[in-house]
Computed example of a mutant assay.
Amino acid sequence: MSATDHADQPAPVAERVTLGEDVQSLRERIALGSFIAVPFIAFLAAIPVAWGGWLGWHDVVITFLMYGLTLHGITVGYHRLFTHKSFKPNRVVKNVLAVLGSMAIEGPVIRWVADHRKHHKFSDRDGDPHSPWRYGTSLRGLTKGFFWAHMGWLFDSEQTNIEQYAPDLAKDRDLVRISRMFWMWVLVSILLPPLAGFLLTWSWQGALTSFFWGTVVRIGLLHHVTWSINSICHVVGERPFRSRDKSGNVWWLAIPSGGESWHNLHHADPTSARHGVKRFQFDTSARIIWILEKFGWVRDVRWPTRERLQAKSVVKSVA
């Protein structure tokens, strides 16, 4: 039996695929709250810290590199590959993307995918885990719903059923193993920047500043950019394509989100490997998939076609 065949064998039914329970525990809520609060506080402190001289070239390089790797682990891996099957990767690419996505510290890959598939099934309707329209359309209801969509839903004690929404991933031994080792990828994500900072500067100050920028600020920024797709992109933005919900395109989030904020086309055509389909709609996630395809590491990429875009457009032509 080849390594690939072994990876495709079903995992034992009794094996927990994420180490979590069907109901979120108090300990999990406390840990989640810590990973939200600490990076957010650090993000607020980032400008005065930089102004005080605690920002070096190595901090910039490490932060941008870690942000890019973990961002695209989510956008290319968790989202376009594992959730929507926009392309088929080889085993190495599959596992690398799962690990990089885990290092974004947004939850184990199988849990994340189950939540997002449920979101698409009920998008902006009853049953959607994180719709900003959950409490109605009044100013008070939308304000409450916006906070819920952005981060409040993360503390919901009821977890999405994996057997219902991600049974395919629960049968992949590689992804089960990576999901169960989520705690290890969290430690790697936290400790890698200060280690790199120390090796580049041979100083504890270099390690400390790299930890602040490359770990804490990077995690906070990445989390809020990701959550903004749930909140901002379901409240405002242009809607050039027909979808069953209120998903919109928010141009100023395109670069930091890796192209995810071209959200209207995504909800109009969820399996499309490219979300930014018009001129100047930058989509670095789609570019990475394109590069992987050119190297022969992924195949059967579901690129959008002019005919398909035209059929979903609210106007007669798409540039």
Score class of each variant (00 low, 15 high):
residue 3 A to D: 11
residue 4 T to S: 12
residue 5 D to W: 07
residue 8 D to E: 14
residue 10 P to C: 02
residue 11 A to P: 00
residue 11 A to K: 01
residue 13 V to C: 02
residue 17 V to S: 03
residue 30 I to K: 06
residue 37 A to E: 05
residue 41 I to R: 10
residue 41 I to K: 10
residue 47 I to H: 14
residue 54 W to D: 10
residue 57 W to K: 09
residue 61 V to W: 13
residue 64 F to T: 10
residue 68 G to W: 10
residue 69 L to Q: 01
residue 77 G to P: 02
residue 83 T to S: 15
residue 84 H to I: 08
residue 84 H to R: 08
residue 89 P to K: 07
residue 94 K to D: 12
residue 96 V to D: 06
residue 97 L to I: 05
residue 98 A to I: 04
residue 98 A to M: 03
residue 99 V to D: 03
residue 100 L to Y: 05
residue 102 S to C: 13
residue 103 M to E: 04
residue 104 A to P: 02
residue 109 V to C: 13
residue 111 R to P: 01
residue 111 R to D: 13
residue 111 R to A: 14
residue 115 D to I: 07
residue 118 K to V: 07
residue 118 K to S: 12
residue 125 R to Y: 09
residue 129 P to E: 09
residue 129 P to W: 04
residue 130 H to M: 05
residue 130 H to L: 05
residue 132 P to I: 03
residue 133 W to H: 15
residue 141 G to Q: 06
residue 144 K to S: 09
residue 149 A to C: 05
residue 156 D to M: 08
residue 159 Q to R: 15
residue 161 N to A: 14
residue 168 D to E: 14
residue 168 D to K: 13
residue 172 D to C: 08
residue 172 D to A: 06
residue 176 V to M: 08
residue 176 V to K: 04
residue 180 R to K: 14
residue 181 M to K: 13
residue 182 F to W: 14
residue 184 M to P: 05
residue 184 M to F: 15
residue 185 W to I: 04
residue 186 V to A: 10
residue 186 V to F: 08
residue 187 L to I: 13
residue 187 L to S: 10
residue 189 S to K: 06
residue 192 L to M: 13
residue 200 L to P: 03
residue 201 T to G: 07
residue 205 Q to P: 02
residue 206 G to L: 04
residue 206 G to A: 05
residue 216 V to Q: 03
residue 218 R to P: 00
residue 219 I to K: 00
residue 220 G to E: 01
residue 224 H to Y: 09
residue 226 T to R: 00
residue 238 E to M: 09
residue 241 F to N: 00
residue 241 F to G: 00
residue 245 D to I: 00
residue 247 S to D: 06
residue 249 N to C: 06
residue 253 L to H: 01
residue 254 A to D: 01
residue 256 P to T: 10
residue 258 G to V: 01
residue 263 H to R: 07
residue 266 H to M: 06
residue 277 V to R: 02
residue 280 F to G: 02
residue 281 Q to W: 11
residue 282 F to C: 08
residue 284 T to P: 01
residue 284 T to H: 06
residue 294 K to A: 14
residue 295 F to N: 09
residue 299 R to E: 15
residue 299 R to F: 10
residue 303 W to I: 01
residue 304 P to Q: 09
residue 308 R to T: 11
residue 308 R to D: 11
residue 311 A to S: 15
residue 312 K to W: 11
residue 313 S to F: 08
residue 315 V to E: 15
residue 315 V to A: 15
residue 318 V to T: 11
